[in-house]
Every structure is written in C-alpha cells, then in structure tokens.
Write a protein that binds this DNA or RNA. Structure first.
Lengths: 210, 210
DNA sequence: GCGCTAGCTTAACGGCGTTAAGCCAACGGA
DNA sequence: TCCGTTGGCTTAACGCCGTTAAGCTAGCGC
C-alpha cells in the first residue's frame, strides 16, 4: 500500500507549495499582492486548483497565521526563561515589537486583518500552551509577577493586565505599520525608542512603589 | 452672474450627497460595504459620476476621514479646558477610546486603513492646530505637563510621549475592533476597563514619585 | 439659433474570490 | 489485460470591485 502514502505525501507537498508561494508573495510584495490568482501563477497551477487544498482564501491565510503565531511564541521562548517575571515581561514586549517591525506583512494578517467573518479555528493544543501561544506566555509571566506581589495590590487580574500590555505594544507596531513614518504631518519618533519608553512607563506604573 | 454661483452650489450639494451616502453606508453596513457602485446606487447616480467630484475612492475616503479627525478634535475640546495637564491627558485617553469604540467603522478608515499609497493631503490649517488636530491637542497637554515638571525628568520628549500615549489607547481600540470579543480563545476583558487600567498605569509610570 | 460645456450616461477593462462542469491519468479489481 | 472509479487538475463563468473611455444632452453665453 505504498500508493496511498505517496499520494498523501504528494498532496501535502502541493499544499505546502501553495503555502510557500503565498508567504513569499506577501513577504516580498506586501499585503495586497496576495490573491488566489497570483498564488496559483507562482506554482504554475490554475487558481481554482487551490480550492482542492484549502476551503477558501481565509483558511489559507489562517494557516499561514498559525505558523506565524508559533514563530512568535518561539521567539518568546528563545528570549530564555528569565527568572524575574517583570524582566521577562519587558523582554517579551521588546521581542514583540521587533517581530512586528521585522515582519509587517505577516503582522497585518495576524493582528490587523480586516475581513474575518469566521474564527481562525485555532487547534486546541495551541490554546493556552505557553510554548505555542504567545499570549499564554505573556500571561504566565504576568501571573508570576502578581503571585510574587510585584505589582500594586489593586492590579490583580492577570488577564486584564496581559491584554493591557499586549495592547500597549500592539499600538506601537500597528500605528507604525499604517502610518509609515515618511511624509506625514507628525514628527514620528523611532518605533523602537517609543516602544522602549512604553515598556519603561508601563512596568513602572505596574510595580509597587519603592 | 447668479448662474455660476448656482452651478457651484449644486455641485457642492451633489458632492455632499456623495459624502453622506458613503458615510451612511459604512456606518450602517460596515467597512467592506463601501464601494463606488454602492455609493452611487444610494444617490441614484452611476458609479463613474462620482469621479467628477472625487479623483478616486481614496480621495473620497480621505475627505470623510478629515471630517472625523475634526470630530475627534471636537470631542477633545468638549472635555473642557481642564487646568491640570495630567488630568487632561487622562480624559483625552478615555475620550479617544470612547470615540473609537463608538465609531469602529470610521476608526478603521482613520487609523487602520490598509492601502494608502498616497498621503491623505491634510490641509495646512489643520496640522498642529489643537482645535482641529487631535494629536496636537494631546501634545499640548503633554508639553504642559513636562513644563510643569510633572513627569520624571528623563521623560522630556513631548513628541515621543504623545506618540506613546496615543499608541497605548490605539492598541486597545484596534485590538478590540479586529479581535471582536466573542468566540475567541482569549478571555477578553471589557475594552473600557482595560483602557482605564492602561491610563492609570501609564500616567503613574510617567509621573514623578511621591 | 448655435456652439460650447458641465454633468451625467453606458460600455468596457482588468482585477478579485469563488463555483460549475469536464477532462484525464493513474489506480484497484475483474 | 481491460474497465470503472476516483483524485487532481483544467477552462469557463458569475458577480463583485475600482477605474477609464466615449458619448449624450440640457442649459448656458453669444
């Protein structure tokens, strides 16, 4: 029964070639360049052929995003298991900003996508698993900081604080992605400098005095 | 020569009807519902007719956004001339979040628009004028806080701090607009509660100790 | 009364996501 | 060895999109 395996393997290879083509397309040519026809052209298929491998365009994009979600979580893991949860939070913040600025097209799809009627169907083993879920990784650090009584006592909701911290860095990344610094009426400061200030200010605002 | 005036007036009226139709369309049916054909249908014109009044779709949207920028600045003005610049910053933050959550479709066009190859061509009298430019209004408050030595001494760049504060609230609004709280694997906290925490934390982080 | 022009029309182009229908090579069973 | 089935692709097409080209006409100034 080597035939079934070979067929399945070829199917997965084609599927992967579609994903690779899509990724290369929007990494190199940006957000709007990704269309089913352009993807198909790159792998020398017809556009409808893609529908034999993905339900629709959203499913394809979702799969790319899931890969990038894992990549982001991997970046977080790579910053190491810093013992001090507050220092870990600071590094998570900078790593997040770095990721967003380095991969603006992916970032758009991941966190700024406009038309998502259905949910991305995140696999269950990913949710809440700090090794694959970047948000869970942040939340874990926040929980530890709360448990160690590093934050002011009224700041006890790990979920809310995690979302606040995420929003803080997301705000910087997304603002800089859409309002590209050139020729605007605002004197834009460097995103990384603003991010550093944000992280300094928020951690200081969270911590107990003294 | 009443004819020229009448023609000009009629032209402006048609122009305004186009703008009104576009606004109503994306306020009531959302972001993606705004197309030249849908707009034209609403005012019982053909789609190409719009091009006699606007260079292209982007110019039309830009004009809508400029109106909303002024509306946002007006909201800021309406929160009153609070003497304490720090308290004013706090209220600006909450007003901003309120504006974004109340008008998500406009907010998308204003601060999350994806394809803007050319610049929005902001009129010169708007730039930097706190009465029409919301960013300038925020920056003014930040400048006053710095001048009154309310912030920690190393925080002296009004531009950077303004952008940081803007990013903080923008992060909350934009995150809640794309990741609509329902059916997601994250236990979303209410946007206003998160915003309140954000404002508390950032102002506390900015202020001098004691 | 006539020519010009402003303001609209219809037709069309090339793009998009997606669906329908059909073709064909490769397979499993007889 | 032949045959029916099936999987994986094709082309054609639908209805949407922004935009351009060409043309029609009402109303203006002369």
């Amino acid at each position: 029964m080597g035939v079934a395996e070979r067929r399945e393997r070829e199917r997965q290879e084609t599927r992967q070639r579609i994903l690779d083509a899509a990724r290369e397309l929007f990494v190199r040519e940006g957000y709007e360049a990704v269309s089913m026809r352009r993807i198909a052209e790159r792998i020398e298929y017809s556009a409808p052929a893609i529908y034999h491998h993905f339900r629709d365009k959203e499913a394809l994009i979702t799969e790319l995003c899931l890969h990038d979600f894992r990549a982001l979580a991997a970046v977080f893991l790579r910053i190491g298991r810093v013992d001090d949860p507050v220092e870990r939070i600071r590094r998570i913040g900078m790593a997040y900003v770095e990721f967003g600025l380095e991969h603006p097209s992916q970032y758009r799809f991941m966190f700024m996508a406009e038309g998502r009627p259905a949910e991305p169907q995140v696999p269950d083993d990913m949710k809440g698993n700090p090794e694959q879920d970047a948000y869970a990784f942040l939340r874990l650090a926040v929980r530890e900081a709360i448990e160690q009584e590093r934050f002011r006592p009224e700041l006890a909701d790990a979920e809310l604080i995690s979302q606040m911290l995420w929003a803080a860095v997301h705000g910087i990344v997304s603002l800089h992605i859409v309002h590209h610094p050139k020729e605007d009426w605002i004197e834009w400061r460097a995103a990384r400098a603003t991010a550093q200030a944000m992280i300094d200010v928020t951690t200081r605002g969270l911590l107990r005095a003294g």
